[in-house]
Design a protein around this nucleic acid. Structure first.
Lengths: 196, 196
DNA sequence: GTCTATACGCCGATAGAC
DNA sequence: GTCTATCGGCGTATAGAC
């Protein structure tokens, strides 16, 4: 309940940023220690292995994501407005996405290639969005295919992030966001959606 | 012109597979040497640095991709049939994609995080597909937004690959491929496409 | 062209003083 | 809780024999 962050918290936050910007494997203990301005030795008082830090980072991201979704739930006046909040993060984080891609997707991809045991935990971040989006689509009256619609929208935002990162195109994200909002509108205005 | 592959070719092919399955950084010289069954020392007769192997792998992938696109150009009786060939690789490589993701997207993402100088070269693989798809959409009479449509389809296949890899869902790829084919149809049957 | 042997640095991890 | 010092291993890369 104190407003001063512990060293442990500083480590987790620094690791969070570095794992996002450089990747998990590409980030060394020295990198994190330098960022927090502590010695490598001190590190091991707080975390025994690198996997422990990864675990703490994933937990932090899960908590932050859950808070964000809760906030959207409060702020959004309607399901479509809430879903638009989701789509809008591509704009809000535009420059970071162009440089580093999507934090959820890139971590999941990296851990999958490493056959890392934490891959399942990382997928929980996707699941948070998936479940929340499916709830919104259910509220919109699409309960039968709510999960399909959620996965569809998730995939499109993932693809946009990957290509924006590869091509570093400023306008591209906005262009696709417009299409996603139009797609969403077709599921809210009338009862007959197009074929996506 | 000989039908016997050189040791160099064997190294490139082994590196190609391992970079795809394990990632570039996660793959060591020892891994590749073991796969080719040569000593680590012999390795350096063929490639001086790890970056050299990466370069050779990218060149191999560019050549293979170009051959595939040329083949689709010959086999496809119409632009929409050719584009359907592109969509169909998600089905053809379904099990690999579920395990390792898309070889183009995952390499691009990894090199971006490493700030690797070869990232620009890796993006050429995306550009090959992008340009080829744009040509097909131009042939379909959508020359004004051919590149946008190409990028849109690229993004969707990328997103599907990322989520299929994260969730390991067998049915999901097929589900999204159906949607992509329906989307494509709306650009071929009549002149008024839906909003994507 | 292929091998063994080895240099050298970085990384994850430990020991122990303060 | 934080530090310095150090270990063992792996990874890239080199030297030189065959």
């Amino acid at each position: 309940m104190s407003n001063t962050k512990s060293t442990r918290d500083h480590i987790i936050e620094a690791a969070d940023h570095l794992f996002y910007q450089q990747g998990y494997e590409h980030t060394s203990f020295a990198d994190i220690a330098d960022a927090v301005k502590i010695s490598r030795g001190n590190f091991y008082y707080h975390f025994k292995t690198k996997d422990d830090i990864l675990n703490a980072v994933i937990n932090l991201r899960v908590a932050n994501t859950q808070n964000m979704l809760d906030q959207w739930e409060i702020e959004g006046q309607s399901p479509e407005e809430r879903i638009r909040h989701f789509i809008q993060i591509l704009i809000k984080n535009q420059s970071k996405i162009m440089r580093y891609g999507c934090p959820v997707g890139t971590l999941s991809t990296e851990l999958a290639k490493m056959s890392h045991s934490a891959q399942t935990d990382a997928t929980r971040l996707f699941t948070l969005f998936r479940t929340w989006l499916a709830q919104q689509f259910t509220s919109l009256g699409h309960s039968a295919d709510a999960d399909d619609l959620a996965m569809h929208l998730l995939a499109r935002s993932q693809g946009v992030a990957t290509l924006a990162n590869a091509f570093r195109d400023e306008n591209y994200i906005e262009q696709e966001v417009t299409l996603m909002n139009e797609w969403l509108k077709s599921y809210t205005v009338n009862a007959a959606p197009h074929t996506q």
